[in-house]
Design a protein around this nucleic acid. Structure first.
Ligand SMILES: [Mn+2]
Ligand SMILES: [Mn+2]
Ligand SMILES: [Mn+2]
Ligand SMILES: [Mn+2]
Lengths: 242, 242
DNA sequence: TCTAATGTACAGGCACGCCCAAAGATCGCC
DNA sequence: GGCGATCTTTGGGCGTGCCTGTACATTAGA
């Protein structure tokens, strides 16, 4: 399996809202930074190879085999993110980008060794490497607290959110929700108002108290919304602020 | 620069006996596990790109630019080997294979973080990340002790040496050298006699006392003889025991 | 129901990195 | 000097993963 194929599988897992909910090929194309035609072509091939199930005009779902592969790769990504953030002190966002490359060249032996290292590293108690449940900010109720797991990748939106301090790893609280779906988010000392369309592009993980376990929880999120490769992100230039 | 290009540069650096000594394209082809025609083609391209200097019927040398690139990649490999061996407990040989992949996706930021980690990891004093001088076993004098840095990659030879315990990371001593160049090597409790042709395919690094610093010294060797990718190694099947 | 947006398909093409077969060029040794 | 081994070059080809342009199919909204 090439890195390219692996990323199609991973992206399909990350982009679906619910299991067995087809992911539109156009969305896949956007997030992977390739043309729709290329994505279509690839999805066909992966359907033939039994990794994806392709329903024309609907999208793709992961087959059992594809799901296994995707989860294996994502578990490797989480291991690397944990290591990069907690042991090397790299920022979550950059760690995600790096891990997205490392996940493809991580042997089973390396997985074992990394897990053992993370478990027995100084100051680490019992650790869990499984994915953690996440939810869209738009679906949260007032009072909910959580850690920003991922945000929109459209450059201008991402830049805005970054400027406001809404970056992966940050602890936030939902202060209020308007009837229209706008969300008022608290960030400790200040707060940000987000349009409904914005709230659907931010994903929260369960809250944690200390900084270290925040990172860990963030790393354990299975539902990254962010596009992993910065290069691919940069391809999404057709965004316009409404 | 693609991974493929990087490996041509690295291999050129590893295979030359002395700086500015041209490396035969056929040797490069063998070690990289590609055909001579492919290697020729590639060397031409890299000459045009100013990374290699190609002298027909002689071989290739690294240009100043190519040398810089090769050394940068190799320094990343050494960092990874150190980490993999000392912190993850992975065996030197496998660590080398893994590092050969990791070296190509290691950002400057990651280099900095890895160095900081290795420097401040528990039990680590002052560390050096520079390459260490090495010499062929065939050029050693009787009484010399050192650490096996790398061995021949031809499957049958490698298997034989492995069976004898002559693997990277092992401490050995040159017990005697015959007039013809055959070498008697001591491995603590036992010894092995090696034909002259075999002695030219084993490289030693300076000796160290404890296991940890042995690995470190081994990791710091700049002159790996081994072919890094196992896949490529497996391509070299035309070997015959004389 | 009809139309416009969205998705799909086909054709042709490109860069990369590799392959083989065959024909030349050079080198090195007898 | 000549000849065989080795190396280089040429020509053609392959697979992967992308691309554009154009035409066709489907879906969903007015
Ligand atoms: Mn990835
Ligand atoms: Mn990214
Ligand atoms: Mn490599
Ligand atoms: Mn190898």
């Amino acid at each position: 399996m090439s890195e390219s194929i692996e990323m199609y599988l991973v992206m399909t897992a990350l982009l679906r809202s619910e299991p067995q909910q087809p992911v539109p090929v156009s969305l896949l194309a956007n997030k992977l930074g390739v043309s729709q035609v290329s994505a279509n072509e690839m999805c066909h091939k992966l359907d033939e190879r039994g990794l994806l199930a392709y329903q024309p005009y609907k999208g793709v779902t992961l087959t059992e085999h594809g799901e296994t592969q995707a989860q294996q790769i994502l578990s490797r990504r989480r291991l690397w993110v944990m290591f990069l953030v907690e042991n090397l002190g790299i920022e979550p966002e950059e760690a995600d980008d790096l891990a997205c490359q490392l996940e493809h060249i991580t042997s089973e032996r390396l997985v074992t060794a990394l897990k053992a290292f993370l478990e027995h590293a100084p100051g680490a108690g019992q650790r869990e490497f499984e994915a953690v449940p996440t939810q869209e900010l738009a679906h949260c109720t007032a009072g909910t607290r959580g850690i920003v797991a991922s945000v929109a990748t459209e450059p201008m939106v991402a830049a805005f959110l970054r400027a406001q301090g809404v970056v992966p790893g940050t602890m936030v609280e939902v202060l209020a929700i308007s009837a229209e779906g706008a969300v008022l988010v608290g960030l400790g000392d200040r707060h940000v108002a987000l349009a409904p369309s914005m709230a659907t592009q931010i994903v929260l993980a369960p809250p944690s108290t200390d900084q270290s376990s925040r990172h860990r929880a963030w790393a354990r999120c299975s539902a990254y919304w962010s596009c992993p490769h910065s290069d691919a992100c940069d391809c999404v230039l057709d965004y316009q602020v409404q």
